[in-house]
Amino acid sequence: MKLSTFTSLICALIYLISCSVDQQKLPILGRMNIEGTDTILHKIPKFNFINQDSNYVTNQDLEPYIYVSDFFFISCPSICPLVKKQMLRVYEKYKDNPKIKMVSHTIDPKRDTPKKLSKYAEKLKIDTDKWMFLTGDKGEILDIADDYFVAAFEDADAPGGFDHSGKIILTDTKGHIRAFAEGTDSDDVTDFLKDIDLLLKEYE
């Protein structure tokens, strides 16, 4: 009995996998809510942050684009350099593609001022029209990390004072999360680049 349950589970899994391969379309991630007869899909709520040039950036600025985001802080001694190297791979691949933007949120707004973020971007040798660095109210930043399914919180015992995951997230033009990768894992990011290509096909 147990074996047959297991076998049917495996079959269902293979069916699901083959389905997603057939359709060649990324799923919309997150919990679905049913309100009356409407299905509400998870999406990034409205936000208003400040970029490296001290200009406001809201959802509306990102709406025409699909974008790749991560969370970091400048003085982060642990995983951030690894994640930034992978973000740089994404940047290098799509820097000439006008459909994509990149967004890095600092989780340490007290120390990572716009001026410092601007210097950081300069040292990273990237174009901030393409890849922006955002700061803002700490509560709002940590809240939006939740919406991206990224764990981020202050922790005096963690190296650098913050604990956070190194996820890289892909969001579509409607604010739905479509894929993510572990930013410390180069192989995972290789697959993620394929996911980005797949999402781009939806906008051709």
Partner: peptide, 12 residues
Amino acid sequence: MPDGSGVNELYP
């Protein structure tokens, strides 16, 4: 990086 490579001018 573990192999000693850096990230542009950010991490020499």
